[in-house]
Structures are given as structure tokens and as C-alpha cells.
Amino acid sequence: MTPAEAGTPLPEALGTIAEDFTSLSVRDRLTLLLEFSDELPELPERYQGHPELLEQVHECQSPVFLTAEVEGADDAVAPPDRRVRLYFQAPAEAPTTRGFASILHAGLDGLTVHEVLAVPDDAPFRFGLGEAVSPLRLRGMAAMLARIKRQVREAVT
């Protein structure tokens, strides 16, 4: 696996989201982030009320949990081509964090293992959100991405 370096392009869906954000004024970026926050999918029933089945993102300033599932482990699909499914839980009182989770969900859910592992680690800094929410707060998104990639890597090795 080649390291995901700066300059590596984003996967298509995530790249489109990044373009959407950066084409907006700083104020409108916050509005778009709120839309993402509102649209974060609920956890499926099997995870509801079971935070122990999810991994807490300790780098976030609010209780945020996530898990990455890799589909098709028993069939003939080669590990790099298996699909990744992402699930997040973040409280309504933490809309920024929900927004970050929702961006990652919209941009990465359903991609292959290979595609997820190729996402550059600096992806969270390509949405122009540093100016809108402050760079300090963006570290939570970087931490979510790192934990997703680690879980995916562990699932196929």
C-alpha cells in the first residue's frame, strides 16, 4: 500500500463536496456544514444503544462514536475491492462534529477498501473549513478519518 500523501486527489464524491465548500463564502460554508450536520444518517438499529460496539473518537470535544464495516468478507471479492460502510453517532449538541462525520459519510461510504485507504490524510483541510470553524476544531475530522482508515486496514489484514 502506498502512503496517502498530500497532493493525492480525493475520491470523486469527497472531491465534489470539497469543491462545493471551497466555492462558497466563509459564512455560507458554515450553512452548508449545518446541512451536512442535519443529514447525518441515524445509526442502524443493531448499533443503537450499543456504544461499546463503536469506537469513540477521543480527539473530538464531544462524545462521538464511529465504526467502519467491510462488506463481503466471506465471498470471492478480493479484500481491496470490498465495500466499506460507515456508521457514526454524534449528539445534536455537537453539530460541528456531526457535520464532519456527515461529510465523511457522504464522501466515503460505499467506496472500496482500496479507495478508502488511499484517501489523503490531509483531506479534512481541503474544505476551506479552517477559516470558518478554526483549524483547532478541524482536528476532530482528521482523527475520525485516521480511525476509519485504521479500522478498515485491520478488517482486511
Binding site: L34, A94, T96, G99, A132, V133, R137
Partner: peptide
């Protein structure tokens, strides 16, 4: 707020 978007919700 601590969360920059909370007001907007």
C-alpha cells in the same frame, strides 16, 4: 458556545 455551529441549529 464551544461548538461554532450550535447557534445555527
Amino acid at each position: 458556545d464551544e461548538d461554532v455551529l450550535l447557534y445555527d441549529t
